[in-house]
Write a protein that binds this DNA or RNA. Structure first.
Length: 256
DNA sequence: ATGGTCGCGCTGCGA
């Protein structure tokens, strides 16, 4: 089962790109972030025509996550537990076949001294609690999304200069490791040792053209999923297309 | 140049 994660930065603005990639890559499950629309506005018909079922947790203008799957999507749960006052649509979870999947959009954090950065660290803590609880079920699980953190120096284009800035701050990397230390595995890094493989390039400063990227989109696998991990990679082709998202898909293949 | 470019939606905010 091929499972991908992709921050599309508006599903409406990106629909031609998304449809092209679904046809080209034919993933079984796609975990989308930043769809930037309410549930009713999600282009379910166009995506359904390609054979996908859809589960959406949308929001007007900002955020929004969704799951696409060729098989039925069961036991859908919307929202990350742990803070009843958090109304931002950043988490959706479901079961597809024998694998539990989730699409996560971790807050960007804006700047290190902002309230949004504190919200980001709090979100990481809640995500850790959720993943810890799910691990107790001892099932195959893939938690994919835009984590908005590059875990290690090899995951950013200039680690010395960027250290301490948003998406590569020591507190964010520690929050990431706290999740990893629960016992989940970064699927891409489990199979690739090479540095300089990125999933996001800032529109500003023409980051893609100048090679200034970050690896911030990840698939975290439970041990039961890692045992079945056949392949994983980052597909940078969609990032070079016209009207591209600033993120590109990351995928893994789990044996049936 | 503490900038740059997108998307949303109509003014500036979030990323």
């Amino acid at each position: 089962m091929k499972i991908a994660t992709w921050n599309v930065n508006s599903i409406k603005a990106r629909l031609p790109n998304v449809l092209d990639w679904l046809k080209e890559a034919s993933p079984d499950v796609v975990l989308l972030q930043e769809i930037k629309c309410v549930d009713e506005a999600f282009p379910e018909l166009e995506i359904g025509d390609l054979g996908y079922n859809v589960a959406v947790h949308g929001q007007k203008t900002y955020n929004g996550v969704a799951i696409l799957a060729k098989r039925p999507i069961e036991d859908v749960q919307r929202g990350l537990p742990g803070d009843d006052t958090d109304v931002e649509a950043r988490y959706i979870e479901a079961v597809v076949g024998d694998i539990r999947v989730a699409s996560v959009y971790v807050p960007n954090g804006q700047s290190v001294d902002s309230d949004r950065f504190a919200y980001k660290l709090g979100f990481f803590g809640r995500l850790r609690d959720r993943i810890g609880g799910l691990l107790d079920q001892e099932e195959a699980m893939v938690i994919g999304g835009d984590y908005n953190v590059a875990p290690a120096p090899e995951d950013v284009y200039d680690p010395d200069r960027l250290d301490g800035t948003v998406c590569y701050h020591p507190d964010e990397r520690a929050a990431w490791r706290q999740i990893v230390h629960l016992g989940v595995t970064d699927a891409f890094r489990a199979l690739h040792r090479e540095p300089g493989r990125y999933s996001w390039w800032d529109y500003r400063g023409r980051g893609f053209e100048t090679g200034q990227g970050y690896r911030i989109d990840h698939l975290l696998l439970s041990p039961q999923a890692v045992d079945r991990l056949d392949d994983a990679d980052i597909d940078i082709a969609p990032r070079s297309q016209p009207k591209a998202s600033d993120h590109t898909p990351v995928w893994c293949a789990i044996a049936e």
